[in-house]
């Protein structure tokens, strides 16, 4: 049971770092290029990447 708790927290960590990293990249691109869509794109990309990573680590047999 203790492993489950640790897994849940590491899933949380992956999702957070995905959103923060790629969202941060998108935010920086928006900031320098004066656009408005990179942030949303980066957040979605980060979310997708981190869910993919979670699937690789926890969902795969």
């Amino acid at each position: 049971m203790t492993h489950n708790e640790g897994d849940a927290w590491s899933i949380f960590g992956y999702l957070l770092s995905g959103l923060l990293f790629w969202g941060g990249v998108g935010w920086a691109a928006d900031h320098w290029l004066h656009t408005h869509f990179f942030l949303l794109g980066g957040l979605l990309l980060g979310m997708g990447a981190s869910i993919y990573l979670v699937w690789l680590r926890f969902g795969r047999e």
Partner: peptide
Amino acid sequence: LLTPLELATFFIV
């Protein structure tokens, strides 16, 4: 896509 996330997770998050 994934390597930055792993690094960010292990060393920052």
